[in-house]
Simulated scan of single mutants.
Amino acid sequence: MGPGVAERLLDARHHTRLAALARTDSRLVAHDLAAPPPAVAAALADAEVLLTCWGAPPLTASVLAAAPRLRAVVHAAGSVKHHLTDACWERGIAVSSAAAANALPVAEYTLAAILMANKRVLHSAHRYRGLRTGHDWHRELAGAGNYRRTVGVIGASRIGRRVVELLRPFALDVLLYDPYLDAAEAARLGVRPVPLAALCAGSDVVTVHAPQLPATRHLLGARELALMPDGATLVNTARGSLVDAAALLPELVSGRLSAVLDVTEPALPPPDSPLYELPNVLLTPHIAGSMGTELHRLADSALDELARYAGGLPFADPVRPEHLGRSA
């Protein structure tokens, strides 16, 4: 994993458990497998499982040649596309991911964003700061609230499904767009499947949870954004590339739409971007995913998988190569 990641991911409890499971030095972290230092090279030659996380170096054919006993990779994060190569799948290496664990904080952030958007919290806070006097808020916020509002979820991904689950206790109508979702699965999820255009036109809040793929670039463009009702809110915790930034900005500057953006394109907006100052935009620096104490959930998930492997059991959350073409 990348420099500094292990220190944030693993606490003393994890090191104790890892050492017991692996019977090895749990503090040996490899940042470079193409030209590893002697201690890493020796460990790699004997390794049966690799525990990886963000910043993991690519597992190329030459790296695998130096790891003849390698049988599995347990990834303590979401996507494995950044470090797994075709050579891994050709070798038949078993792979597990903590994507399900990482989906939880993203879904929780999204739930909070949806409830606050319908309550018009951003608008109220900005107005309150400016007025600083008594005001008829019931009149101004007559259309606000979360009762019988409609939320459109784009993508029946792990995160999208978790968002749907978290929305169940609320009196909200949920629309879902996913080209791979059939009617039976939509019924099981308790959502109404609709085309993307219908979702945009019929939702008070649109939240994006599709994977970043060539086919999903600018999934929400000028047409889709124009279909969203006046006063609607766009929530994006997926990837900035899924929304056409050039089409979104005029909608936000005009005040017709609001947005909660945890991801943007570019990833860091330029210093003079209006996104930093617009009162109808909540801009956060890609914090919806696991951070702080939530990293320990990823570690717990990964070590649970390692324990399953050590016990001769299949992974609870395997990654299958045939699914990579339509996953994050």
Score class of each variant (00 low, 15 high):
308 R>D: 13
288 A>F: 12
308 R>F: 09
277 E>C: 12
303 L>D: 04
290 S>D: 10
300 D>P: 04
280 N>K: 04
289 G>T: 09
301 S>I: 01
288 A>E: 12
293 T>C: 11
288 A>D: 12
272 D>Q: 06
291 M>D: 12
273 S>R: 01
305 E>F: 10
291 M>Q: 15
296 H>R: 06
276 Y>K: 05
302 A>T: 03
284 T>V: 14
280 N>C: 11
301 S>M: 11
293 T>V: 15
287 I>P: 00
304 D>E: 15
290 S>Q: 07
296 H>L: 15
298 L>Y: 12
273 S>H: 01
271 P>R: 00
305 E>K: 06
286 H>G: 05
296 H>W: 15
282 L>V: 04
301 S>N: 07
305 E>D: 06
298 L>Q: 08
286 H>F: 11
287 I>Q: 05
284 T>P: 12
299 A>H: 08
303 L>P: 07
307 A>M: 10
280 N>S: 14
295 L>C: 05
307 A>H: 04
275 L>G: 03
285 P>C: 04
282 L>G: 04
300 D>A: 14
288 A>R: 10
276 Y>I: 10
294 E>F: 10
286 H>V: 13
292 G>I: 14
293 T>W: 08
294 E>D: 15
291 M>H: 04
295 L>V: 05
281 V>Y: 01
295 L>A: 05
304 D>N: 11
278 L>F: 05
309 Y>T: 00
272 D>V: 06
276 Y>P: 12
272 D>E: 14
305 E>W: 08
284 T>W: 04
303 L>N: 04
292 G>Q: 10
284 T>N: 05
291 M>C: 13
288 A>S: 15
296 H>K: 00
289 G>I: 14
285 P>N: 00
272 D>R: 00
309 Y>P: 02
288 A>P: 12
303 L>Q: 01
286 H>A: 06
284 T>C: 10
272 D>Y: 08
309 Y>N: 03
290 S>Y: 01
299 A>Q: 09
307 A>D: 11
302 A>Q: 07
275 L>E: 06
304 D>I: 06
274 P>T: 08
279 P>V: 03
294 E>N: 09
273 S>Q: 04
294 E>K: 02
271 P>T: 01
285 P>E: 05
271 P>Y: 00
277 E>V: 14
271 P>M: 03
309 Y>K: 00
304 D>R: 12
306 L>I: 08
273 S>E: 09
306 L>S: 02
292 G>M: 13
278 L>P: 01
307 A>L: 07
